[in-house]
Design a protein around this nucleic acid. Structure first.
Length: 556
DNA sequence: CGCCACGGCGCC
DNA sequence: AAAGGGCGCCGTGGCG
């Protein structure tokens, strides 16, 4: 039976307490105090590698690493698990901190998750390490009680093994997120700088607008015959209208169809101004230090289980700028992305025979086109995306009808999820992550079909959300399981290979060049394990396309 | 002045 | 008849 160990750092200094637990959370004795908690944790990790139980990984693990602890294999993140369990139990929108979970056990009023506020209304500084526990509560006692309760709640669910796996994967992801945030993505400021200069001209002093953008703006004024601010969609819309071009928006795809000299200039301006504003020199100075871009990953930051990031926009790095991501000398980047992950997830979830056949080693859309669309890959793709996202009209209507007749099980799965959402219900991913319940206002408006409050559009919209949730959340589980497996596979390769980036269905490992083949093998093994863990004996293939490169931009 | 919604666009 | 999911971040423009 796997041993667990509860961890509570002291509020100040480097000491703290540990308490060994059995799998169900029963303490093996009294807590033991250590002056150097990181050293003791490292010693026990080498000796027995227990699953570390703590209130929140982003604080506890960072605290330990700051104090020299070695990397840890496994944990149970009470806050992340609480969030999953609240969903399982249909108790959405409840606070999920250790303090809140403990208050629920004790039948006390629940503290909010937001920063605590004192009597003066100001946030209470340094309250975070108590995780919203009241001053009189012993953090170790609360941690042990909440953890034991969580183990019971996992066992009481419909699929305890799946939820256990989900909790372990979510917690492992939290470990990886802390490590990746600290290691950072290699980022060559000089390459970034050359790229910006080639696009925008020399860097202007004092954060001013690059000359080229000013020139483009002037050109736009001439082409439209009036002064305009190209950063203002409203102004541009009316300026185009007066020039005889009626637009419903200033979106790029619409401008591309406009035959007017201002349209091309405007498109060029938008492209360049975006790079300058979002990933220009100011961005680099704010986010890149010592050759590394260090984003803060937010595990479970998206309801579907995808990660989010705080600051730096790490999950939206433009492809163009990937040229600045270069491995250190003697190193390589192993870049692995899962191809066509979401349609493959749909195939595996639904067990649809035809879609499973298409979800083999090759191009899924091409196989689909071969089977049902006379080889027209574009139509096959439009249809399948529409099925997963909930588009029903326009150019998708005809391909959708084909899919419904040829792949009935796959379509039935997404359409059932949509109906559940339209009716105000909740849906679940494969491992049991639960979609949020619609708000009370939504239920009032969409609930009664014939009253004046009826809002079919809101119902349809929520149906599209739940339809996609099942797919997106299960895809996120596959990716999370893959990441966790890869992290474990990399451990025996030593301290060289490091996970440095994770973006929904793609992972990047920075490694000494001579270990790149071993890392590539680890990636393949991780993908296989993720499939086995989440879908069991499915015949659907989840190919991971792996590239060993020096520069991220070359991985395509 | 800060706060917020919105349009728009980057990524998946 | 039409009806495309999830994020973060930028600048604008309206508000108090």
């Amino acid at each position: 039976m796997t041993q667990r160990t509860a961890v509570v750092p002291d509020p100040v200094g480097s000491g703290g307490r540990l308490l060994s637990l059995t799998e169900d959370g029963t303490p093996a004795g009294p807590p033991q105090a250590y002056a150097d908690l990181a050293a003791e944790v490292s010693r026990r990790e080498r000796e027995s590698a227990p699953r570390w139980v703590w209130a929140a990984t982003d604080e506890a693990y960072a605290w330990l690493l700051d104090r020299g602890a070695q990397r840890l294999a496994r944990c149970h993140d009470v806050k992340l698990v609480e969030s999953l369990l609240l969903g399982q139990e249909g108790r959405h929108r409840r606070p999920r901190s250790l303090g809140a979970a403990w208050a629920r056990l004790e039948g006390r009023p629940e503290p909010e998750d937001s920063p605590e506020h004192g009597a003066d209304g100001q946030p209470v500084l340094f309250a975070a390490d108590r995780h919203h526990l009241p001053p009189a509560a012993d953090p170790m006692a609360a941690l042990v009680a909440v953890h034991a309760g969580q183990q019971e709640r996992i066992a009481a669910g419909e699929h305890p093994d799946r939820m256990r796996l989900l909790c372990a994967a979510e917690s492992a992801g939290a470990l990886a997120a802390v490590e990746m945030g600290r290691d950072g993505l290699p980022w060559r400021a000089d390459v970034h700088d050359r790229l910006l200069t080639s696009l925008l001209g020399p860097r202007p002093a004092g954060g001013a607008r690059p000359m080229l953008l000013g020139e483009l703006a002037l050109g736009l004024q001439e082409a439209l015959g009036r002064p305009v601010n190209p950063d203002s969609p409203a102004q541009m819309l009316s300026a185009f209208a007066r020039a005889g071009v009626r637009l419903s928006s200033t979106r790029s795809h619409e401008l591309r169809r406009v035959d007017h000299p201002a349209a091309a200039l405007f498109l060029r301006y938008k492209e360049l101004s975006r790079i300058h504003a979002a990933h220009g020199w100011a961005w680099r100075e704010a986010w890149v230090r010592d050759g590394r871009f260090r984003p803060e990953y937010v595990v479970g930051g998206v309801v579907s289980g995808r990660w989010a990031t705080r600051g730096g926009g790490a999950l939206q790095i433009p492809r163009l700028l990937r040229a600045a991501v270069v491995a250190d000398p003697g190193h390589r980047l192993v870049v692995a992305d899962a191809g066509q992950l979401e349609p493959r997830v749909l195939a595996a979830l639904s067990g649809d025979a035809g879609l499973t056949r298409a979800a083999g080693d090759g191009d899924l859309y091409a196989a689909l086109a071969q089977d049902a669309f006379a080889g027209d890959r574009a139509r096959a793709k439009v249809g399948l995306l529409a099925a997963m996202y909930g588009q029903t009209g326009g150019e998708a209507a005809a391909p959708l009808a084909v899919l419904r007749s040829r792949f009935p099980a796959a379509l039935a799965l997404v359409e059932a999820a949509a109906r559940t959402g339209e009716a105000g219900g909740i849906v679940r991913s494969r491992l049991g992550r639960t979609s949020p319940a619609p708000s009370a206002e939504w239920l009032r408006d969409a609930g009664d079909d014939d009253g004046p409050g009826t809002d079919r559009r809101a119902a349809r919209s929520w149906g599209r959300f739940t339809r996609n949730f099942v797919i997106q959340a299960t895809a996120a589980e596959w990716a999370l399981a893959m990441l966790a497996a890869l992290r474990r596979e990399l451990t025996p390769l030593g301290p060289g290979p490091r996970l440095v980036f994770f973006q929904h269905d793609e992972v990047v490992v920075h490694t000494p060049a001579e270990l790149a083949p071993a890392v590539s093998s680890a990636v393949t093994a991780a993908g296989d394990e993720a499939r086995r863990l989440i879908f069991g004996p499915t015949r659907v293939v989840f190919p991971l396309h792996t590239h060993v490169v020096e520069c991220y931009a070359d991985a395509k």
